[in-house]
């Protein structure tokens, strides 16, 4: 009789600069499923991991923002394809993390793939919608175009661990920003799986950096970091005190802040453009006519 097989108990790592390092602190924590059973260990990101992630994101910014919008669209579409290929893995992760039925979990993965495709399509269209050729009182072409803000810290939603995650991540990178993302604390598994998808789908290393851990300990460092240009506080929805302190810290270098909602929104609802336009800067160029 064969001996019973020993479980492989996984300890996932962070995703920084295209690599999968352990947390600098050496700490990890236990991720449980919706019924309180062990799922896996996740790395507990520290402030130094956040610092390293910002350095990686800054390094990747020039290359990513310099790519053509068309190319960014292709890469985002590729992410959707790979995610689609890994459907069973993601459905299981969502099912475990969020306690959904298999059918509901599958629907969430569908929605996440569709959301990525939707944002991928916007890459080379946003400029037409929010940019403009302005009429001015002089012989000039006057053109306004959206430019990426820079390094954006994103606190991913605590509840919706895949659809919510994709809904805050995709609109930020599609315009050319790079991201340091702090995943849901209690439900890190879909974020860890998404890191593996990103690493194998043409997204340059450093464009998305994923930290699993507690937003309350990592986010203050990101909010105060002078080399972070904007922060999305979706992950601290409902925690007014923390959200306020993060906004105060972010004011130091005039970061753009996407404020925390009072409660986590319904991520299944159709998105609007503000998720993208909140993290772009409008650049206006004057060019003499006839030259």
């Amino acid at each position: 009789m064969a001996a019973p097989r020993i479980d492989v108990r996984k300890t996932y790592k962070l995703y920084i600069g295209g690599a999968f390092p352990r947390s600098e602190s050496g700490y990890s924590y236990t991720a449980l499923d919706a019924k309180g059973r062990f799922v896996a260990n996740a790395a507990l990101a520290s402030r130094k991991d956040a610092r390293d992630a910002v350095v990686a994101a800054r390094k990747a910014f020039g290359g990513w923002s310099g790519r053509t919008a068309y190319n960014r669209a292709q890469i985002l579409y590729r992410v959707a394809e790979v995610l689609e290929d890994r459907r069973p893995q993601f459905a299981l992760a969502v099912q475990q993390s969020e306690g959904l039925t298999p059918a509901r979990a599958n629907a969430v993965v569908d929605a996440a793939v569709d959301r990525l495709v939707w944002y991928a399509g916007w890459a080379d269209k946003l400029t037409q919608v929010v940019g403009n050729a302005n009429p001015v009182a002089g012989p000039f072409f006057n053109l306004s175009t959206p430019e990426p803000t820079g390094v954006v810290a994103v606190l991913a939603p605590q509840g919706s661990s895949l659809l919510g995650l994709v809904s805050v991540l995709a609109p930020v990178i599609v315009t050319g920003n790079t991201v340091v993302l702090v995943s849901s604390y209690a439900r890190p598994l879909p974020a860890v799986n998404l890191a593996e998808v990103l690493a194998t789908s043409d997204v340059p290393g450093g464009v998305v950096n994923i930290l699993t851990g507690d937003a309350a300990t990592v986010a203050p460092w990101l909010a105060a970091h002078l080399d972070v240009n904007a922060i999305d506080l979706a992950g601290v929805a409902g925690d007014t005190e923390l959200a306020t302190s993060l906004e105060v810290a972010a004011a130091d270098n005039l970061k753009r802040v996407r404020r925390a909602p009072a409660t986590e929104p319904d991520w299944a609802a159709a998105p609007d453009l503000t998720a993208m336009t909140d993290f772009v800067e409008i650049k206006t160029v004057w060019h003499p006519m006839g030259v």
């Binding site: 610092r51 910002v54 800054r58 460092w221 105060a224 970091h225 002078l226 080399d227 972070v228 810290a249 130091d252």
Partner: peptide, 9 residues
């Protein structure tokens, strides 16, 4: 200052 600086500074 207790906060991380950046290459812009």
């Amino acid at each position: 200052t207790g906060r991380y600086s950046g290459p812009d500074y």
